[in-house]
Amino acid sequence: MTTALIIGAGQGLSTSLARALHARGHSLILAARDTSDLGGLASETGAALINCDARNRDDMVRLFDTVDTKGPLDVAIYNPSARVRGAVADLDTEAVENAILVTAYGAFLMAHYATKRMQPQGHGALLFTGASAGVKGFANSSAFAMGKFALRGLCQSLARELHPQNIHIGHFVIDGVIAKSTDSEPGNTVLHPDAIAQSYMHFLDQHPSSWAWEIELRPQTERF
């Protein structure tokens, strides 16, 4: 059984992704700084829970050491991001540093350690959750824009490097608000997490002759 890893697991999109990957037969590892609210999801999907701060190199090393005990790593997904709002002259510089580390540097660490596992086996997929802030910078959102632009640049570079090695890179531009609950149909003004997860699964099923590296997802009514 191949392993799927979700970093930054929580309620909402990560829950939908975990359920979708479980349905495909993957053994799951869910990593987050605090996994205390993931017990129900772990019981439902058979997932292992690992406390991990994605900004921390030592934590990520320990996480991937655990991955090695679970079987071949087929899919790794990076969800964390941190947003600091405000005018650039008023921002707390330490908070901005943290936001960039969470949004971009942690993504690099996942790519670094996951690629080391996927290259010898000759296949794998690295998927990253982006945002419209990685395509256009909004006023009073400089920290988030920096982090998400860096994430998008990382993914574009990875795709050019790793696609020829049969490692599929996916950057998902989430343009809109994600519904908080998976239990009801939110309509077409926000993104339903189950629908987003299905787009991730469709991405995994793309034929190598027609691989995308980026998809934009937005509600029908979202202006762009």
Rank of each mutant, 00 (worst) to 15 (best):
D68F: 00
D68R: 12
G71V: 08
G71H: 05
G71N: 07
L73I: 06
D74E: 14
D74V: 00
I77K: 07
Y78W: 10
N79R: 00
S81R: 12
S81V: 11
V84G: 04
V84R: 06
R85Y: 12
R85W: 13
G86T: 09
A87W: 09
A89I: 07
L91V: 10
T93K: 10
T93Y: 06
E94I: 05
A95H: 07
V96E: 05
V96T: 02
V96M: 13
E97S: 15
E97T: 15
N98T: 15
V102K: 04
T103E: 03
T103M: 03
Y105I: 15
Y105Q: 12
G106A: 08
G106Q: 02
A107H: 06
A107T: 08
L109Y: 01
L109T: 02
M110P: 03
M110E: 08
A111M: 03
Y113I: 02
A114H: 01
T115S: 12
T115K: 06
T115R: 09
Q119K: 14
H123Q: 13
L127C: 04
F128V: 07
A131M: 08
A131V: 04
A131G: 13
A133Q: 09
A133H: 07
A133W: 00
G134Y: 05
G134K: 03
G137P: 12
A139I: 13
S141P: 00
S141V: 02
A145T: 15
G147C: 10
G147K: 10
K148E: 13
F149P: 08
L151W: 06
R152Q: 13
C155G: 09
C155I: 05
C155L: 07
Q156D: 14
A159T: 06
H163E: 06
P164C: 04
Q165I: 05
N166A: 12
I167A: 01
I167F: 05
I169Y: 00
G170N: 08
F172G: 00
I174A: 04
D175F: 09
D175N: 14
G176C: 11
G176K: 04
I178F: 06
A179P: 02
A179C: 07
K180T: 09
S181G: 06
T182E: 14
D183K: 14
D183P: 00
S184N: 11
E185P: 00
E185C: 11
